[in-house]
Design a protein around this nucleic acid. Sequence first.
DNA 1: TCCTTAATGGGATTGAATATCATTTATAGT
DNA 2: ACTATAAATGATATTCAATCCCATTAAGGA
Lengths: 129, 129
Amino acid sequence: MQERQTKQKSIIYDALKTLDHPTATEVYGYIHEFYPSVSRATVFRVLNGFAASSRALELKVAGSDVRYDYNTHPHYHVHCRECGKVADIQAEALSVIEKGVPKEVDGFSVERFSVEFFGICPECKGMKA
Amino acid sequence: MQERQTKQKSIIYDALKTLDHPTATEVYGYIHEFYPSVSRATVFRVLNGFAASSRALELKVAGSDVRYDYNTHPHYHVHCRECGKVADIQAEALSVIEKGVPKEVDGFSVERFSVEFFGICPECKGMKA
DNA sequence: TCCTTAATGGGATTGAATATCATTTATAGT
DNA sequence: ACTATAAATGATATTCAATCCCATTAAGGA
């Protein structure tokens, strides 16, 4: 038998669409209000599963916890260096990069790359005052 | 008074040069053999400090723990998707990217970007057999 | 050598993420 | 519909990197 559709999965997927690049903990906090019976473990498991099956992207960066993005279309992200918040960013396709990269390095097989942008978000910018 | 030079710092820096893109825990494990009195907290603190003062790079990625690189010259990395190991990679300067990227997005100020490569290392490739 | 204070040791603590496992429940087959 | 099977869940315990706390140590300027 293959993967099953469960209420929890759709609850979590809805939360993922509602929230803005949330962490697993943020998703849990959000749905816990409405569905207290959904366990933390399930949230982590399901989000992991979404990422594994490409139903969501896993954004793993610097200091901040892993974040999830239901938008699996190719796009880029800016990460706030203060609070870890993430926003989408429009940039030209970066296929340019592939050209300069060897397929094999020191025995390593290079399969893919990722580009992440960093900066500071409006809220944290305000904090500085 | 400014920063002080301590024995711990030079021990940790030496370990950093000896080991290959180690995590803080790997550094601790390594020096603990020879200098059991150096505490875990110090290793984390000092490596953090190195990164903050640009004496080392902090490599933060996917699943794997934060790794440190004493080589602060501009270069890129391949991360093994299985074990998290890191190797240096030579690629052309990617200044190309900057052109396509806005300085301001949704109130975010974009300050910098990073490019990371992923693949599989020789050891993990062997495992598959 | 003395003083100031940055830095350390080490034990306690945090918190995301994972493991375990008995129980629940989605779904394929009848 | 009904049942059997195993995927998925809930609850709790556990792991482990990373941080915190604070009394003690020691770097380095005077």
